[in-house]
């Protein structure tokens, strides 16, 4: 899947990921905590219907869609009430991740554990830069997605009356795959821009984006990104199969653990990708661009000099 150089890139990224593992675990814990907060009001609402009814057994031993539909249709479950909370807390997680990006990239760049003060200083110092880069990324990703959406719509219209439905489907899948590759590339571009921003202390975000664009022509790095994207898909598919096949339908804890393991892996792999970008940046970018992980500047002011005492008269 990858050549030796990519393997070494993957290993270099992996080493950095392990270095920052405590922050990845923290991010997972925050992800879980926000998820729990988003789910908190659901339990009491459905519990008032399910906990005292024998009928709920059809949801425990297997999953009876008819029972679930009847539950979802009840006014007490307040259809749709759960979604705003989940969306709101997803946005909160986005903000948390943006905050952590500067610190974790600084640690990746330092290739050593940063002390807590320096870590959070890097987080704070880069926060607004990362916010602006995230906005730029969202725009670039949206444009990319819009272009491909147009292509897919055009193809859909062209194939609308075709009897070759499967062939049309395969073409649509191919376009979707290319779209995913393009979006992966856009993500890599902005990961490099983020790395450049943290490493060089660059304040002008557009300049960082330009640098990222310049670096993003790296085929080796893209192959490594692609390998990890494939790994993500594999984790989801195999994890879901494992969850579906192994976990007994009535074992809620087993199901919880498997699903959480999948979610943790997805999160970690994403941060592995960022570590790849840092490893690649360090190996390719001229050394004159200093890595900015500075001690907080201490301004030493000389003690005030008092005027010489006037001679006694």
């Amino acid at each position: 899947m990858t050549d030796t150089r990519n393997d070494s890139l993957l290993r270099a990224g992996w080493r950095r990921l392990l270095l920052a593992k405590r922050y990845i675990i923290w991010l997972y814990v925050i992800n879980l905590a926000l998820g729990l907060a988003a789910t908190a009001s659901l339990g009491p609402r459905i519990g008032s219907i399910l906990d005292s009814s024998l009928y709920s057994g059809r949801l425990v031993h297997g999953f009876d869609l008819g029972v679930f539909m009847e539950l979802a249709a009840k006014p007490e479950t307040a259809r749709g009430a759960q979604m705003p909370a989940s969306l709101l807390l997803a946005i909160a997680f986005l903000v948390v991740e943006i905050f952590f990006v500067g610190g974790i990239l600084a640690e990746y760049l330092a290739a050593a554990r940063l002390e807590r003060g320096r870590f959070y200083a890097a987080c704070g110092e880069n926060f607004w830069k990362m916010v602006r880069l995230a906005i730029l990324f969202a725009i670039a990703a949206a444009i990319t997605a819009a272009i491909f959406h147009g292509i897919r719509t055009g193809l859909g219209n062209a194939f609308e009356y075709s009897p070759r439905e499967r062939w049309a489907f395969a073409v649509q899948c191919l376009v979707l795959f290319i779209e995913a590759l393009a979006l992966l590339w856009v993500r890599m571009w902005f990961d490099l821009a983020q790395t450049h921003t943290v490493a060089s202390g660059e304040r002008a975000i557009r300049r960082s984006a330009r640098q990222g664009w310049r670096y993003a022509r790296a085929a080796g790095l893209y192959r490594a990104y692609f390998a990890l994207a494939v790994l993500t898909v594999a984790v989801i598919v195999l994890g879901s199969w494992f969850w579906w096949s192994i976990a007994p339908a009535s074992q809620v804890w087993a199901s919880f653990l498997i699903l959480q393991a999948i979610l943790f892996c997805i999160l970690a792999i994403r941060w592995w990708q960022r570590a790849l970008a840092v490893a690649w940046w360090e190996s390719r970018v001229p050394a004159q661009e200093p890595v900015l992980v500075t001690e907080p500047e201490v301004v030493v002011t000389p003690p005030p000099t008092l005027p010489p005492p006037e001679p006694a008269t």
Partner: peptide, 24 residues
């Protein structure tokens, strides 16, 4: 049954967060 459904929604919420976090 309550815990099972809550677990599904929890997973969905976390996944939604991570998908949105892709923007960061």
């Amino acid at each position: 049954a309550r815990r099972k459904l809550s677990n599904y929604w929890l997973t969905f919420s976390e996944l939604l967060s991570q998908m949105l976090g892709w923007i960061s």
